[in-house]
Lab assay of single mutants.
Amino acid sequence: GQVNVNNTTYTFPTPKLAKEFAQKAAKKYNLTVHVSGNTVTVK
């Protein structure tokens, strides 16, 4: 799974890890998680 945070893309071996990372990043920066297919964007 891929996660985009502040124009930086992070790649994870599983969608589960990507989702967990996205949720932590969203909480940390007070942003929202947007899911589109296999790509998760935090903005």
Rank of each mutant, 00 (worst) to 15 (best):
N4L: 10
L17H: 06
K43T: 15
S36V: 14
T14H: 04
Q23R: 14
K24W: 15
K28V: 09
F21L: 01
V42D: 00
V5H: 13
T39L: 06
A22T: 01
S36P: 00
Q2N: 12
T14D: 06
K43M: 15
T8F: 15
Q23Y: 10
Y10G: 01
T32W: 07
V33N: 00
G37W: 03
G37H: 04
Q23M: 11
K24M: 14
K27F: 07
K19Y: 13
F12R: 00
A18G: 01
T32V: 13
V33M: 05
K28S: 05
N30K: 09
H34G: 04
E20R: 12
T9V: 14
P15D: 08
V35H: 03
H34F: 13
A22K: 02
T11E: 08
F12P: 01
Y29F: 08
G1W: 07
V35D: 01
L31I: 10
A26I: 10
L17N: 03
N38L: 07
V42G: 01
N6G: 12
V5L: 12
V42K: 01
V42A: 02
N6T: 13
Q23H: 09
H34V: 15
A22G: 04
S36H: 11
T11N: 06
N4I: 12
A26H: 08
N6K: 14
T14E: 03
N7F: 15
P13W: 04
T9F: 07
G37L: 03
H34K: 08
T9H: 07
Q2V: 11
L17P: 00
A25T: 12
T41P: 00
T9N: 05
P15M: 10
K27H: 07
T8P: 07
T39G: 02
K43A: 11
G1V: 13
A26Y: 06
N6A: 11
K24N: 08
T39A: 05
E20P: 00
T41A: 03
K19N: 10
T39W: 03
T14P: 00
A25Y: 14
T41H: 05
P13L: 08
L17D: 07
T11I: 13
L17E: 10
V33H: 01
N4K: 12
G37N: 05
T41I: 14
A25M: 15
T11F: 11
V5M: 12
F12Q: 01
N30E: 05
Y10I: 10
T8N: 09
T9G: 03
P15I: 12
T8K: 14
N6P: 10
T8L: 14
G1Q: 12
V40L: 02
T11W: 14
K19W: 15
Q2A: 11
Y10H: 05
K28H: 10
K43E: 14
L31P: 02
A25N: 03
A18Q: 00
G37S: 03
V3K: 12
N30Y: 09
F21P: 00
F12D: 01
S36Q: 12
Y10W: 08
T14Q: 02
T41V: 10
K28E: 10
T14Y: 03
A22E: 02
K24L: 14
K24A: 09
E20I: 13
N4P: 11
V3H: 13
K43W: 15
P15E: 14
T11D: 05
T14W: 03
A18L: 01
E20M: 12
L31V: 13
V3R: 11
A18I: 01
K16M: 08
H34D: 07
V40Q: 00
L17R: 06
K24H: 11
V3W: 05
V3N: 12
V42R: 01
P15N: 11
S36E: 13
F12S: 01
V33L: 06
H34Q: 11
S36T: 09
A22N: 01
T41Y: 08
A18E: 00
N7A: 14
V33P: 03
A22Q: 03
V35F: 03
K24D: 04
P15F: 10
Q23K: 14
N4S: 13
N4V: 11
Y29N: 07
A26R: 15
S36R: 08
K19F: 13
T39P: 00
Q23G: 05
K27G: 05
K27I: 08
T39D: 03
K27Q: 10
V33R: 00
K27V: 07
Y10S: 02
T11M: 06
K43S: 15
P15G: 06
G1R: 11
F21Q: 01
A25R: 03
F12L: 03
